[in-house]
Design a protein around this nucleic acid. Structure first.
Length: 294
DNA sequence: ATCTCTGTTCACAA
DNA sequence: GTTGTGAACAGAGA
């Protein structure tokens, strides 16, 4: 479920516990989400320490505690973070519960593709966090950097490259499809065929979508504007919000991919075209739609 | 019963 | 070194 904006939404669910002390920790110690994690250390060290702050980077989340303790969270496919009442009784999939006097911070994950890390790296974030590539909205995510990444994956379909977390941290299946649809490029065009102007258009589109997804989904789990592909991409044959033609859904780069055959012609027929000005539709959300998490 | 899914990793092939 | 494929992980919902 979670991509960049959803991840940030879930990260903020735990803001309820910032500045507050952890009294005890409840854990499903053998749950798969703790693979490679020092669970016993986590359960022993966290109590009596306070949650200080959190940050997100793509699909990764990092919680900082006093005492130089760090909790890393990846939500996988079905992970979620919630703040519940202090006396909340953990459910079957609530694998990690940090109890505080005021509330209970819960990490739940039915399928357990997610992951929890625990580090005692002191003042600075753990090594794995510092090794993350430039975030999409970071100043280091430059057009030149992007060009170098595309060159390295020149023969891969662009859809596959967009899903590469080492290049586009936080982009998942729906964001990749949204970006391609907005650019009117077919998902299978090779990343190396983009010309300079097209690489620039891609750079702009990626940043635009990251910002605007954070501003809609990231804030309150609201649906993105109807002008986006997002709300239409779930069923084959739904009308393309740009041209009204039927949308296609097929597997590409190992994932179900939705695109408009009319707006995004196949690679053999027409190479990726350069849009004049990047489209700027859907800035505002006309019909606020609030859906509770889960 | 069967299929799908907003993710990642690993083994293996070319 | 790059790229593609399939399996595996594990559960819920249609």
């Amino acid at each position: 479920m979670p991509e960049l904006a959803e991840v940030d939404y879930f990260r903020r669910r735990w803001d309820a516990g910032v500045g507050k002390r952890v009294t005890c920790v409840a854990i499903h110690a053998s749950a798969r989400i703790f693979r490679g994690c020092a669970v016993e250390r986590l359960a022993r060290q966290l109590p009596e320490h306070s949650l200080r702050a959190s940050r997100a980077h793509g699909k990764q989340i990092l919680f900082e505690f006093t005492g130089g303790l760090w909790l890393g969270v990846h939500l996988g496919m079905t992970g979620e973070l919630r703040a519940e009442a202090a006396d909340y009784p953990p459910g079957r999939h609530d694998h990690l519960v940090l109890r505080q006097k005021e509330c209970a911070l819960v990490f739940a994950d039915a399928r357990m593709f997610g992951r929890v890390r625990f580090d005692e790296s002191g003042d600075g974030p753990p090594a794995w966090w510092r090794a993350l590539p430039p975030a999409l909205l970071d100043a280091a995510f430059t057009e030149e950097y992007l060009a170098a990444c595309l060159a390295r994956r020149a023969r891969s379909p662009l859809k596959a490259v967009l899903l590469d977390q080492a290049i586009f941290p936080g982009v998942g299946n729906w964001m990749a499809d949204e970006i391609l649809w907005r650019l009117q490029w077919h998902p299978l065009i090779p990343a190396g065929t983009l010309e300079a102007a097209q690489r620039r258009a891609l750079w702009h589109e990626v940043r635009w979508l990251a910002e605007n997804a954070l501003a809609t989904i990231g804030v309150d789990w609201g649906d993105p504007p109807r002008e986006w592909l997002y709300t239409h991409r779930w069923a084959t044959g739904n009308p393309c919000p740009r041209c009204g033609g039927p949308l296609s859904r097929e597997e590409a780069a190992g994932r179900t991919t939705c695109w408009c055959p009319a707006c995004q012609p196949a690679p053999g027929m027409l190479a990726a075209r350069t849009p004049g000005k990047p489209r700027r539709t859907g800035h505002r959300r006309e019909t606020p739609f609030h859906r509770p998490p889960r």
